[in-house]
């Protein structure tokens, strides 16, 4: 299992291995060392050196952002893939540390290019991912530290299907500058996600109030003072309204938390 002379070691995590067989063959043809695929992130031996984990998002056990966070914590570089993930799921996965996202239906040539970039420690932006990041930036501006006009134009080119080389030459950017810029776009996306999506504590409050617990019981479960629960609910409501422009703004904090919790499938 020597990786010498190859472009890197790749493994595919997918609970339907049949779906990925032809991709494994194409990656091997392209010069990657392809390990035998696994069906869950827990099945990957942490000691085996791997350059890229291509990870499906619908998996048994840990899935989606949780699966990616698990791999990220082990120091793995993850290229997320899915045929059915929503924009929110993809953005969560990127915030969890994925290095790129590619639609499962993409042609294998595109997959090979994506895996190569991630293997070279670079970011891979598919048209879909560029679209999700751009739309998220429009919907939830960050203020200071947000991406600027150049980044938005770059995202737009990726949305239209341009390759990295094409984008670089179009804007007259050296490739390493463009790669840095892409890292910045990803970092801003992660910040945006953290600021506008519920934190783990807030998710816990949402899960508990969805279960019908009173403030006092929520506080007892979470071992916090009861008066902090309304504060959590207020910040959940603020984030809920920021990410749901169509929601009625006079929704009570409790109901905002409940609605969002059921939307996110908590509880």
């Amino acid at each position: 299992m020597s990786t010498a002379g190859t472009l890197g070691t790749v493994v595919i995590v997918d609970d339907h291995p049949i779906a990925m067989e032809s991709l494994e063959a194409r990656l091997a043809d392209a010069g990657f060392t392809v390990l035998v695929g696994v069906t869950a992130v827990e099945h990957l031996e942490p000691v085996i050196p791997i350059d890229v984990v291509v990870c499906d998002l619908r998996l048994p056990g840990r899935c989606g952002a949780e699966a990616v966070a698990h791999l990220h914590a082990q120091g793995r570089r993850v290229l997320a893939t899915s045929g059915v993930a929503t924009a929110d799921e993809v953005l969560d996965v990127m915030a969890a540390g994925a290095r790129g996202f590619i639609a499962k239906t993409s042609p294998s040539a595109v997959f090979v290019a994506a895996v190569s970039r991630v293997a070279r420690r670079l970011v891979y932006l598919s048209a879909e991912l560029a679209h999700y990041l751009g739309a998220d930036a429009n919907r939830r501006p960050l203020g200071t530290g947000d991406i600027g006009a150049l980044e938005r134009d770059v995202l737009r080119c990726f949305e239209q299907g341009d390759s990295v080389d094409e984008v670089a030459s179009r804007f007259g950017l050296p490739l390493d500058r463009l790669d840095l810029l892409l890292e910045g776009i990803l970092a801003a996306g992660t910040t945006r996600r953290r600021r506008h999506m519920p934190s783990p504590r807030e998710r816990e409050v949402m899960r508990l109030v969805l279960g019908g617990l009173s403030h006092r019981d929520v506080a007892a479960r979470m071992m916090v003072a009861p008066y902090t629960v309304p504060d959590y609910l207020k910040s959940i409501k603020a984030k809920y309204l920021a990410s749901h422009p169509e929601a009625v703004s006079d929704v009570s904090p409790l109901n905002a938390a409940r609605l969002w919790a059921s939307e996110l499938g908590l509880g």
Binding site: P107, A109, A127, E159, Q160, G161
Partner: peptide
Amino acid sequence: PRQDVNFYVEATEAGVEVVVRDR
């Protein structure tokens, strides 16, 4: 043989931009 294509459609108050991009 490569039949993958990007189909980008943007329509705002400012105008429309549509890109059909194949490889």
